[in-house]
Design a binder for these strands. Structure first.
Lengths: 236, 236
DNA sequence: ACTTCCCACATCCTATAGGATTATCGGAGC
DNA sequence: GCTCCGATAATCCTATAGGATGTGGGAAGT
């Protein structure tokens, strides 16, 4: 296929729109902006040294993800924080998606098991560091971001192996909302040990070969996450 | 600038982007375009008497629905027809979504039952006319479109009453793909009687008050639809 | 002092123009 | 006859400009 993978840096041309999209996306995911803050087209265009047109396209794409809201003739804003009801619905949707994906991936091949173990160990490793920092009273923002990425990565393994692109798409859409929730509602990582243990239980269930065990373990995990998060949302 | 800004082809006053989006969407859903056909920005802009910018925004929005594909620096095209594997995945996703929505809507209030009955009668009424036309050997395209709309409407009732906006969003996304499938893969409506009967069974299950009956009826219905469609796809 | 009206500023939205890239078609060479 | 190559045309992509709309502040009136 591609003759020389070595020099693909200069001719990476895929339009400004995608670059602008990624920049704004990571800006949103980094959490530096308050919900409701204005996202002026011209302002962003000036900051990125591009014209308003690609910025506008990127905003349309972002609007579809739910991270930004648009009011006609008034401009774009950072989406308001998720309400308690939205939070519950989000967890319900995720429960449906991931249990189904787990069921579809149930006859676990050896490569799935390997990937799952790798993701789980990564998650556990970072989780341990997070727990240490938490005991020391420190809050390490980059570390927590890394932790969330590892957690997302673990779940992504199953979605990638369920063999259904629509489920994967839905999961990625929900993933953006989930990230937003973690920034606004939750302030830290209150349940590292529980999450790591439950992930390990899922891996064990897959390794056991029982056909219904993985779904049961995943259901338990997600219901626990839901319960912990909603309890935290209500104010401890 | 344009000669007469006052009467621009029935375009109202809330931003051209949404209007352009709707126009292109109904153009795609009407089925007048071959899969793979080019969707030139400037061409569409000229046809609708607007500038390329709102057309471009509408295309970004459409790309997210899966109805059109985009190749950087090459333009937009009508998405290729769904393969057999995509078809199966689509039905699996729909099965997951609708059974879950049915379960969530299970304690049926009287207003849900009323809406469901109304939608079911509408579906049955149009279905009868479709069957008559089918017996007479005629193929009435507007009538089949109306039939599909009624079928979609029946399922939409449940999604609207499940109380979860994410499930509703997913269903609408899948709905576009479903519509596309009906245009390409299926040519007519081969299973009017079965579909009407199964919808009636779903309504009855809701009316019975049994907590698990609606989910079971809906599962049976969707599995039957899946089986009939895939059999047709394989070529009778 | 409070409300209302009006005007100036900022921003969004659309239109037009030009550079860059890709597809197409005709012709030369093997 | 087939392949390769170059020029032309069409299209996409980005940038810039101007009209339309919403917003905020100040002055006048009650």
């Amino acid at each position: 296929m591609s003759a020389n993978p070595g020099l693909r840096g200069g001719i990476e041309r895929r339009g400004l729109r995608d670059h602008v999209y990624e920049r704004i996306l990571e800006l949103l995911l980094s959490g530096g902006l308050e919900p409701g803050a204005r996202l002026g087209i011209d302002t962003i265009a000036r900051d990125l040294d591009v014209s308003p047109t690609p910025v506008r396209e990127a905003m349309v794409q972002l609007e579809r993800t739910g991270l930004v809201t648009r009011e006609a003739l008034k401009g774009y804003r950072v989406a308001p924080p998720l309400g308690a009801d939205q939070l519950a619905e989000l967890f319900d949707a995720r429960l449906m998606l991931e249990t189904t994906a787990t069921r579809m991936a149930a006859p676990a091949g050896p490569e799935l098991l390997a990937e799952l173990r790798r993701a789980q160990q990564q998650h556990a490793r970072i989780g341990e560091r997070v727990a240490e920092a938490l005991d020391a009273g420190r809050v390490d923002l980059p570390l927590t971001a890394e932790y969330f990425a590892a957690d997302t990565g673990f779940h992504a393994v199953l979605l990638h192996h369920c063999g259904n692109r629509y489920l994967l798409d839905m999961s990625e859409t929900l993933g953006a909302q989930l990230h937003r929730m973690r920034q606004t509602a939750l302030r830290g990582v209150p349940d590292v040990e529980e999450a790591v243990a439950e992930h390990a239980a899922v891996v064990e269930a897959f390794a056991s070969g029982e056909i219904d065990a993985p779904v049961a373990a995943m259901t338990r995990h997600l219901q626990n996450v839901r319960e912990r998060s909603l309890r935290l949302e209500r104010g401890d």
